[in-house]
């Protein structure tokens, strides 16, 4: 898309997405970090499905100034096609202004998983001006976008802005093995859950072993007592273990919903912890 078109489209989409969120009030789960977001998103989505929630997650790359509002509105990109963009804006307007109860009810209960990708300073502020999170999963900070930020600590500052945007009853889920991510606990006073291999991680992996078909590890979590058992993921790489830990955290924080979702919804029986 050329730059002349980009600005007005981003502006219109931002406000339509804001209007849509204000109307439907979805539970927003933000996945942030410089890498590993895809697998975290999958893990969160899977856990919520297991709990019988209606879930929607953003498509890959729909995570910045244009992609994020499109994800919220569940619309495709027009790419370089002006006509396609006109149609998308029209669809976005109709969605944002659709106040029929049926449409609102369905989306009101939806859990929306959104990646927030930043590649320049203050990007996070902009993304938060579109939507604010109820839950944040922070993965890691690597040198991926360092060019624009000068230091990794400057990237961490962006994620601190995100953590601060959580409401008092939100949840901040952080990687205990990444010191910069760990430090986010200092900026949020609400519920913080840690995961990783670190000794003090609340949802912890220990004794990682690679088998021919994937990774094996001992999963430990301290509830009333220390629960500990071996787990296996049929993928290779530590990031899949982290994703599995986050899946456990989500399962732990969201009560299972009965399968007859729509009848429960009509009776106003939906709940979450």
């Amino acid at each position: 898309m050329n730059d002349i078109l980009k600005k007005p489209i981003a502006f219109i989409l931002k406000w339509l997405a804001k209007a849509h969120v204000a109307k439907t009030k979805p539970y927003i789960i933000v996945i942030a970090g410089t890498t590993r977001r895809t697998w975290m998103k999958e893990a969160v989505e899977q856990a919520l499905h297991e709990r019988n929630f209606l879930v929607r997650a953003n498509k890959k790359h729909f995570n910045a100034e244009i992609g994020l509002p499109l994800s919220i509105l569940d619309l495709p990109s027009g790419e370089g096609d002006v006509r396609a963009w006109m149609e998308i804006l029209w669809e976005a307007t109709k969605k944002a202004l659709d106040f029929r109860k049926q449409a609102i009810d369905r989306e009101k209960t939806e859990h929306l998983i959104l990646e927030m990708a930043i590649d320049s300073p203050h990007d996070m502020e902009y993304l938060l001006s579109i939507v604010k999170p109820n839950m944040v999963v922070a993965t890691t900070i690597t040198m991926i976008y360092q060019e624009q930020f000068e230091t990794l600590d400057n990237i961490a500052k962006e994620f601190a802005v995100l953590a601060e945007a959580l409401p008092w009853n939100g949840i901040l889920i952080i990687n205990a093995d990444d010191d910069r991510i760990r430090n986010l606990a200092n900026v949020y006073k609400g519920k913080v859950v840690t995961y990783g291999f670190a000794e003090d991680a609340q949802f912890r992996a220990v004794d990682q072993k690679r088998t021919e078909t994937g990774e094996e590890f001992r999963f430990e979590v301290k509830r009333k007592e220390l629960e500990s058992y071996r787990k296996k993921v049929s993928r290779f790489g530590q990031h899949h273990i982290y994703a599995e830990l986050v899946r456990e955290i989500v399962l732990d924080n969201f009560k299972a919903q009965p399968k007859e979702f729509f009848s429960r919804m009509a009776k106003g029986m939906l709940q979450r912890d």
């Binding site: 410089t34 890498t35 590993r36 895809t38 690597t142 040198m143 991926i144 994937g214 049929s234 993928r235 290779f236 790489g237 530590q238 990031h239």
Partner: peptide, 23 residues
Amino acid sequence: PELRETIEEKLAQEGMYYDFENE
């Protein structure tokens, strides 16, 4: 890393499972 993540995803779609960080 972003490219290697994409490669890992692509490979997984083709039934090949490799760790973007080390493989």
